[in-house]
Design a protein around this nucleic acid. Structure first.
Lengths: 193, 193
DNA sequence: CACTATCTGGAACGATCGACAAAGTACCGC
DNA sequence: GCGGTACTTTGTCGATCGTTCCAGATAGTG
């Protein structure tokens, strides 16, 4: 028909994600987003409709990039304790990985956007629940096999583990001490005993 | 000397706190703060110097109102498990208390402001550390008395508990389910066994 | 090759941002 | 009661906000 879109949509969303993660939603201006993506504001509005639209796209990419692999790992069929530990270590790595101080988009969105935008709130609940569900299935199976404690229900244990992951994100933002965070994660894992 | 200040400084800071908690730092405008406090913007600038100044005052009041009582409770000399449980239950109550969806200022500040303003970062670290320290003293004493596990150091246990508290704040923002949060808190407490 | 539908970057919009100065007002010590 | 001082109010500043629109550029169609 006519001219095709020139830029890579995913790359633009990815660049926008870094900005939102470091400056928050309100703290990020369209100017910031233009510079980060290399796009004119016109192109952004044509592609995403609004700042909110772009933010939602960023949120979806974040889910796809971080939450989905975690769920896949939990459902991989490997040893329950091993994969859960791997998820925790991976989270600590992600927090302390680079020096760019990119906070967790999920936690940030929970604090800043969940109460303002129902679409954000839905996505957050959906992401958390799919993670909890994957943990639940894994833990329930492990309980049947006698690999972990049955003192607490798999539901509670799953919810607790997600809570701990969120807590690690917050602690990492306050003090990104990899060794300390790892030790806190280890303590959390002892709840499975 | 001269005309006395007409408004209650603490009341103004308290009103501003509610706004910051519900809208975040960047999401709150001076107009919002004027309406909430009932003060003209001129008065706010005379009293606090800037929006940042007011935010720091809010942060200090939040510490004084929530963190300090927690530390006092932990140092009250009562049974370690009982006071720790009380701190957790109190946190869950605070999260699910009213329907106004006021998120935790500490967590919000960690996500939104810690990387932008060193004075905020300092206050956050100081608050967390005083809470960790109070927990440490309590736990170390409890370990000597054989009241809790010695499998993990008191330092790690204290850090883990603070991590869990932060996690509960995040989970509460995503889904303020009091019963679920309480069960997650219970699981966290089993780490002391 | 000409046409045209679409994309692009940037200018410009009204609104609102944080901040401030000037003017008015109420209180103090004298 | 008076002068002076500090506080409050009001209006406004330039900058920046998110958004829209437009003119030019470009790639696909016939």
């Amino acid at each position: 028909m006519a001219r095709t879109r020139e830029f890579d949509l995913d790359a633009a969303v990815s660049a926008a994600m870094d900005v939102f993660r470091s400056k928050g939603y309100e703290g990020t201006s369209m100017r910031d987003l233009s510079e980060a993506t290399g796009l004119g504001s016109g192109s952004i509005y044509a592609a995403f409709g609004s700042k909110d639209g772009l933010y939602l796209a960023v949120l979806d990419l974040y889910r796809q990039r971080y939450a989905t692999p975690m769920v896949d790992l939990l459902r991989s069929g490997n040893d329950p304790r091993a994969v859960i530990r791997e998820v925790f270590i991976g989270t600590v790595d992600d927090i302390t990985g680079d020096g760019r101080h990119l906070s967790c988009l999920i936690v940030g969105a929970s604090m800043e956007r969940a109460h303002q935008d129902v679409r954000v709130a839905e996505r957050l609940r959906s992401t958390t629940q799919s993670l909890e569900l994957a943990l639940y299935d894994l833990l329930a199976e492990a309980q049947l096999r006698g690999q972990i404690t049955t003192d607490r229900s798999a539901t509670d244990l799953a919810g607790f583990l997600v809570t701990s992951l969120q807590g690690l994100r917050v602690m990492g933002a306050i003090n990104p001490d990899r060794a300390a965070l790892t030790r806190y994660a280890e303590v959390a894992l002892t709840c499975l005993d």
